[in-house]
């Protein structure tokens, strides 16, 4: 546990007045306040240090203790006991643990002791941080919101499924509803950082990114796919089994189907987000394949066909 120079944190010297402490605190708090620095962990950490320094230096008693023991804070308790013992014995000594530092003062209304350093808790006790300032009010801070990103495949986005991931060393298991869109953000209330002074925990915002699929392209709730069709079926008509996200489907192909013709399969597209049982459409574009490797006899038949 390292000694923390609270005066240095606030940029003050030891003789700073209470007013100086207040001004320094306000100035630094405006710069590093979490409300003004969203998603900035460094600023958040710095703000906690500033608050801790303010908590000590704005409270005359805490400041006195801090000034008195300073770097020797670890021995403060035993020194106090020794001093009391000496006083009872009618003997006093001035040597030992003299004050090392100047004083500042601040009042933290925004952070509980749980957010203070081990140094602070060791010197002033873990209860000292809570409400020591006696200020206008004991403000409750909602914990910091977390933002996370999750990349899933189109196939995964097609069905409602569970996902487990770790954020800030905490395992989070979520249900990803079918039909979630690329770039869509969902909020998980209370999965952010813990609240301060009994405030509510922050929220977790998860933004989903959906990978491109080789077969299906998604536009809204509709899916688009290009399917190869042999020339003979395209000319004469017939049946063709195609893949959908939901399995295979047998389609009737009309005779004389042209290359690039589109066929819409109702409700074979993507599930509509949070509307169970509802789906977009699947739009098939037929890509007619010209046969290759024809035999001489087949070529002859094509020639005859072209002249007929």
């Amino acid at each position: 546990m390292e000694f923390i120079d609270y005066y240095k944190v606030l940029g003050l010297d030891k003789n700073a007045s209470q007013d100086d402490v207040k001004k320094a605190y306000r100035k630094l708090a405006r710069k590093h306040h979490p409300d003004l620095n969203p998603n900035d962990k460094e600023a958040n950490k710095k703000f906690q240090q500033i608050n801790e320094a303010n908590e000590v230096l704005s409270d005359p008693e805490k400041r006195k203790k801090y000034d008195q023991y300073g770097k020797d804070w670890q021995h403060a308790e035993e020194f106090e006991k020794a001093k009391q013992h000496q006083q009872r014995s009618g003997y006093s000594s001035n040597e030992g643990y003299g004050g090392g530092f100047g004083g500042g003062n601040f009042s933290s209304e925004d952070f509980s002791s749980g957010d203070f350093s081990d140094f602070f808790n060791s010197m002033f006790g873990s209860a000292a941080g809570a409400g020591g300032g006696g200020g206008r009010r004991q403000a409750q801070f909602k914990g910091q919101d977390y933002n996370a990103e999750l990349t899933i495949t189109l196939k995964e986005a097609f069905t409602t499924h569970k996902r487990t991931f770790t954020i800030h060393d905490k395992n989070v298991r979520i249900t990803v509803p079918a039909g979630i869109a690329d770039g869509q953000t969902i909020k998980l209330k209370g999965y952010g950082a813990p609240g301060l002074n009994g405030g509510p925990a922050g929220d977790l915002y998860i933004t989903f990114h959906i990978e491109e699929d080789n077969t299906f392209k998604r536009f809204g709730n509709d899916l688009y796919a290009t399917v190869e069709l042999d020339l003979y079926t395209a000319v004469l008509g017939g049946e063709k089994t195609i893949d959908t996200m939901d399995g295979k489907v047998k389609l009737k192909v009309n005779a004389e189907t042209q290359n690039g013709t589109k066929t819409r399969l109702k409700e074979k597209g993507f599930p509509i987000y949070k509307e169970e049982g509802k789906f977009g459409d699947l739009i098939i574009t037929w890509n007619i394949k010209i046969p290759t490797g024809l035999t001489e006899k087949q070529k002859e038949l094509f020639r005859a066909l072209s002249q007929s």
Partner: peptide, 16 residues
């Protein structure tokens, strides 16, 4: 309410 709390902190705690 979250926004209101934030504005309260900015005004009363940070003198903005």
């Amino acid at each position: 309410l979250n926004e209101l709390e934030k504005f309260i902190r900015l005004h009363y705690d940070l003198d903005i």
